[in-house]
């Protein structure tokens, strides 16, 4: 098998006074793969994504030790903007869109690369993936529904041509119908563009259809890893970590 697109080795992430949120985590994500990280609240899932995608200067989190490699290049501890340059784009758990900006302005805020023609082409392609955008271009993003905000966040991320798209809790706070729409869109992205995804999710039913590999996170470490089907069907996982009936 080729070298993984993302290699994480012994990653430890801590905050402020030193509380460790992610502890010595190893993770590989290959090109075109959809990798799912499951776990209860506070397990360290979001911190894992932030440790990979980088912390802004105004944040208190930092990578304490370990390595993050993208395509073999060491990008450990780089700030988010630099990570975007390396093709790693995060759609965060909350505040995925600029609420005071219109939908169109949210898209224009993305620093797209390439010439004018190719930027226009990419924008049209992304808008065609999420048709509601065209109808709501002039609406402040804060007035979109939760599901539409989620999709707008993903659309903006796609304009940055990610090699690895990380989506944190895509289903959080959404109705079942909205969750299905969001995951249908992610499914289409994977099918149509061969997108490499690293998603953090608590909604197992929603994520199960698209994941290739899965990891269950407990107290900052991976308690279980393997092919998604095996991990998600595991009796131990369903009972112990996900609280589902067996």
């Amino acid at each position: 098998m080729n070298e993984p697109l993302l290699q994480v080795r012994g990653l430890t992430v801590s905050y402020g006074g030193g509380s460790v949120a992610v502890d010595q985590v190893d993770l590989d994500v290959h090109d075109g793969e959809v990798c799912l990280v499951l776990g209860a609240n506070g397990a360290g899932k979001t911190s894992l994504l932030r440790g990979i995608g980088g912390f802004a200067a105004s944040e208190r989190g930092r990578v304490r030790s370990g390595k993050v490699l993208i395509g073999g290049a060491d990008v450990t501890g780089r700030p988010p903007r630099t990570m975007v340059g390396h093709g790693v784009v995060l759609v965060p758990e909350e505040n995925k869109v600029f609420r005071t900006l219109t939908v169109g302005e949210n898209l224009r805020a993305a620093p797209m690369t390439g010439d004018r023609g190719s930027r226009r082409e990419l924008l049209d392609e992304v808008v065609s993936l999420f048709p509601f955008i065209r109808e709501r271009m002039d609406l402040p993003a804060g007035q979109l529904s939760g599901g539409e905000r989620q999709l707008l966040g993903i659309a903006r991320a796609l304009l940055l041509k990610p090699r690895l798209l990380m989506v944190d809790e895509a289903s959080l706070g959404l109705s079942p119908i909205a969750v299905r729409k969001v995951f249908d869109s992610l499914h289409s992205l994977v099918a149509a563009k061969g997108m490499t995804l690293l998603i953090v999710e608590q909604n197992v039913r929603a994520a199960r259809a698209i994941a290739d590999r899965a990891h269950v996170m407990v107290s900052g470490t991976f308690a279980l890893s393997g092919p998604a089907r095996e991990v998600l069907e595991s009796e131990q996982v369903r009972r112990t970590y996900l609280g589902l009936e067996v």
Binding site: S58, P92, N95, F98, P111, A157
Partner: peptide, 10 residues
């Protein structure tokens, strides 16, 4: 509006 999201958005 949100400097962290802006940074994450490149």
């Amino acid at each position: 509006e949100n400097s962290v999201l802006a940074s994450q958005g490149g």
